[in-house]
Design a protein around this nucleic acid. Structure first.
Lengths: 243, 243
DNA sequence: TCTTTCAACTGGTATAGACATCTAAATCCA
DNA sequence: TGGATTTAGATGTCTATACCAGTTGAAAGA
């Protein structure tokens, strides 16, 4: 279990070991794990080394401590992933649905003033505009419009879009999206949305507008989505700033 | 600077001291701070104690380390606020609006099965239920229902609610909310919402259901809000998981 | 039977020292 | 001059030990 000769630090080995027990469900939420002194004696390692492992797991949210009582397993954070940036595809997979898309239009257009401002480019700079109906288990889920500055992602084709736009961006262009802002509001489906989403007129939709940024802060894309309110719920976890 | 006789842990004193230097701008981003051994000798404390202080500051994002080179000051985080948990009051203030409330009802009720499950308590356990119309600049903004297990916040009064529920929770009861999950969806205003929010029937509303948790993972409150879609937009910043 | 006391746990704080590994500057040598 | 080597100093890992402070349950006492 613990190999003192390994070049991998002992605390890290213990960390991975405990993490595995939690993720596999052998250690259940609110269950106490062995005390620091027990680990120390069992593996013949210093208590401080055990503490280093446990501290990391506490910081990562796997465990919590109670002075005088012990160290306990935290409830699994399902949302850990959701905290990150999720594409429609990843989002649907996580919900256990099969994602698919139908391309509606794909063209290069000059950026309108509002779009130009949000992408921090000059007016009329060419941008790719991709309109798609996003589906889950073959049912329309959202109408999505993606806008990307053409100079950042040259040579985009329908084929690439249909395969995986994000994979292409990350692997082929080696660009990394590090941050995003989302604005979420409720509305009533407009006519195009009624048509493409196959809802009755007057139906509520959840509008999500996402602006993504690269590591250096350059705006990279603007994605506007209108989700069918009867099928989609946006879930989101926040952690308080530790002040 | 460092008082060894103080009941406040030494590592915590050092932590606050360095944090202050960073926040006041005396230590600038990417600047190296004194080495661990320097702190150790200067204040006659163990290097491990210094490391505990620095580790905490690294975890909180104030510092970063480079093996063999030193420890450096991180860039200030802008998004800290949005990432944190915001009450309606804080939210509105940040938007430059004046928040107020009108209490609709305040009672102790037995928890229904669904509520009990979400708050992880037994059915029919007494909970406080607070219904309020939340207003911004004296215009109805949202209809909000807050449910709290009565055993966690004994002796709640109308007066406390009208003053500041969160302040009471943090300062008087010394409970800390460390995490929250939110579910956001779009809907059409129901009758009570139409009445209290003064919207036309058929108007869209943004529904936000928030569950807050204490540091040990205990569910603490469930807040259901229906926002007027024409007045409210939910904004939210995400950072990609650093893997 | 009920209450109090206390011992045996728990994690929290702190020390002093050892060796490893990495970095960058100084030094040496061809 | 230019490249290799040494070296000083930085963080990283780990040990062994000590005492503090909160929790709990069993033993002792009323």
């Amino acid at each position: 279990m613990i190999d003192k000769q390994s070049p991998i630090p002992i605390y890290h080995q213990l960390e991975e070991y405990i993490k595995q027990l939690i993720e596999s469900g052998i250690l259940k939420p609110d269950e106490a794990i062995p005390s620091e002194r027990e680990y120390s004696e069992q593996y013949q390692i210093s208590r401080m080394t055990v503490r280093q492992a446990l501290n990391n797991l506490v910081n990562d949210g796997y465990l919590y401590r109670q002075k005088g009582r012990g160290t306990f397993v935290n409830k699994q954070k399902v949302e850990q992933k959701l905290q990150g940036l999720t594409s429609f595809t990843e989002d649907m997979k996580e919900r256990g649905l099969v994602p698919s898309s139908r391309l509606i239009s794909f063209e290069i257009i000059p950026a309108e003033p509002q779009l130009a401002r949000k992408l921090d480019i000059k007016e009329n700079t060419p941008v790719y505009e991709i309109k798609r109906v996003r589906m889950a288990d073959n049912l329309p889920m959202a109408l999505e419009t993606t806008c990307l500055p053409a100079n950042l992602v040259k040579g985009l084709t329908e084929e690439i879009i249909n395969k995986s736009l994000y994979q292409h961006i990350e692997e082929k262009l080696s660009l990394t999206i590090s941050e995003a802002t989302q604005q979420i509001e409720a509305s009533i489906a407009k006519e195009t949305e009624v048509n493409h989403l196959q809802v009755e007129s007057g139906s509520p939709v959840l509008l999500i507008v996402r602006t993504s940024f690269l590591e250096d802060g350059t705006p990279f894309e603007l994605v506007k989505s209108a989700y069918r309110a009867d099928r989609y719920k946006f879930v989101h976890t926040m952690q308080r700033a530790t002040k």
